[in-house]
Computed example of a mutant assay.
Amino acid sequence: MLIFGHRGSAGTHPENTMISFEEAARAGADGIELDIQLSKDGVPVVIHDEKLDRTTNGTGWVKDRTFYELKQLDAGAWFSDKFKGTRIPSLEEVLVWAQGNSLLINLELKTGIILYPQIEEKVIRLVEQYGLTGRVIISSFNHYSLVETRRIHRTIKTAILFSDGLYEPWKYAKTVEADGLHCHWPIAAYPVILDGAKQAGMPIRAYTVNDEARMREFMTNGVSAIFTDWPEKAVRIRRG
């Protein structure tokens, strides 16, 4: 079972920041998960919420700030004073860094509320530019984004995100030409889902798995990967 650091190492570091991704790599995670939106001037940036209020000292919508303006915000002090001055990274910054390691990279397109124009193309072109198409999975709760991703690029991996009991999701995923199932962790505990996905040859990756007992269960029941805020803990359990 693979371990993805959810927004890096979000349990120990401010989420979706370079220091959080670096910590996940140090902890021995197999991959990282991060969230992509666009600045007002169309730059792909790494932040989860559509609004800035929770994880920065800014307010309002990400979409209403230029990249320069977003870069002036503090994205670490909310988590701890010792991370004060941490900045919102661009996707390009993460991809440049990723060239120096072998991590898998799950890019979640945050298009469920804001339909960012050409976000799929902008993201794919950057991934291609840095030669990382073979290490990237693009996921989204907005499956129209996955269809657009597949239209632009025929082989890059995609995965549907879903949180409820979608019937035979492996069949549905094939209708949008997706390669994987990214589901809320309770769904990944259903034997009928696990068995059906296995027979269909489609990996299931569960989010967000932070409980030790649940980690141990998923390491033995056929789940392909977990996303966790605590990658160091998950790696330790897997080694044990």
Rank of each mutant, 00 (worst) to 15 (best):
Asn142Glu: 03
Ser145Phe: 11
Phe162Asn: 03
Ile160Thr: 05
Ser145Ala: 08
Ile152Asp: 08
Thr133Asn: 04
His153Lys: 15
Ala159Tyr: 12
Gly134Gln: 15
Ile156Lys: 06
Val147Glu: 07
Arg154Lys: 14
Thr158Ile: 03
Arg154Asp: 06
Thr158Phe: 07
Lys157Thr: 12
Ser145Leu: 02
Thr149Trp: 00
Phe141Ile: 14
Leu132Ala: 05
Ser140Thr: 10
Leu146Gly: 04
Leu166Asn: 04
Arg151His: 09
Thr149Pro: 15
Glu148Gln: 15
Ile137Val: 04
Ser140Cys: 10
Ile138Gly: 00
Glu148Asp: 04
Ile152Val: 13
Arg150Glu: 02
Gly165Glu: 06
Lys157Phe: 02
Thr158Pro: 07
Val147Trp: 13
Gly131Tyr: 11
Ile138Thr: 06
His153Ser: 04
Val136Ser: 04
Tyr167Lys: 12
Thr133His: 12
Val147Cys: 10
Ser145Ile: 07
Arg135Gln: 09
Leu132Met: 06
Lys157Ser: 05
Ile160Glu: 01
Ile137Cys: 03
Arg135Gly: 00
Ile152Met: 08
Gly131His: 12
Glu148Cys: 07
Ile137Gln: 13
Phe141Met: 10
Thr155Lys: 13
Glu148His: 15
Asn142Ile: 01
His153Gly: 03
Leu161His: 04
Thr149Asp: 03
Ile160Lys: 08
Leu161Thr: 09
Val136Asn: 09
Arg135Phe: 02
Gly131Gln: 07
Arg150Trp: 12
Arg154Met: 04
Ile156Phe: 02
Asn142Gly: 01
Phe162Gln: 07
Ser163Met: 05
Ile160His: 14
Asp164Cys: 14
Leu132Phe: 08
Gly165Gln: 04
Lys157His: 02
Phe141Arg: 09
Tyr144Arg: 14
Gly165Pro: 08
Tyr144Ser: 10
Thr158Cys: 00
His153Ile: 05
Phe162Tyr: 10
His153Val: 02
Gly131Ile: 07
Tyr167Asp: 06
Gly134Ala: 03
Tyr144Asn: 09
Ser140Ile: 07
Thr158Gln: 05
Glu148Met: 13
Asp164Thr: 14
His153Gln: 07
Ile156Ser: 01
Ser163Thr: 13
Leu132Lys: 15
Tyr167Ser: 03
Tyr167Trp: 12
Val136Pro: 02
Tyr167Ile: 12
Ile160Asn: 06
Arg154Tyr: 09
Arg150Tyr: 01
Thr158Arg: 13
Gly134Phe: 09
Gly134Tyr: 06
Asp164Ala: 06
Phe141Gly: 05
Ile138Ala: 03
Asp164Gln: 11
Tyr167Leu: 02
Glu148Ala: 11
Tyr144Pro: 09
Ser139Cys: 12
Ser139Leu: 10
Arg154Cys: 01
Ala159Phe: 15
His143Arg: 15
Thr158Met: 04
Gly165Phe: 14
Thr158Trp: 03
His153Ala: 05
Asn142Pro: 09
Glu148Gly: 06
Ser145Cys: 08
Ser139Val: 15
Thr158Ser: 02
Ile152Asn: 09
Arg151Ile: 09
His143Met: 01
Ile138Ser: 00
Arg150Phe: 00
Ala159Met: 11
Thr158Asp: 00
His143Gly: 01
Thr155Cys: 07
Thr133Cys: 08
Val147Ala: 01
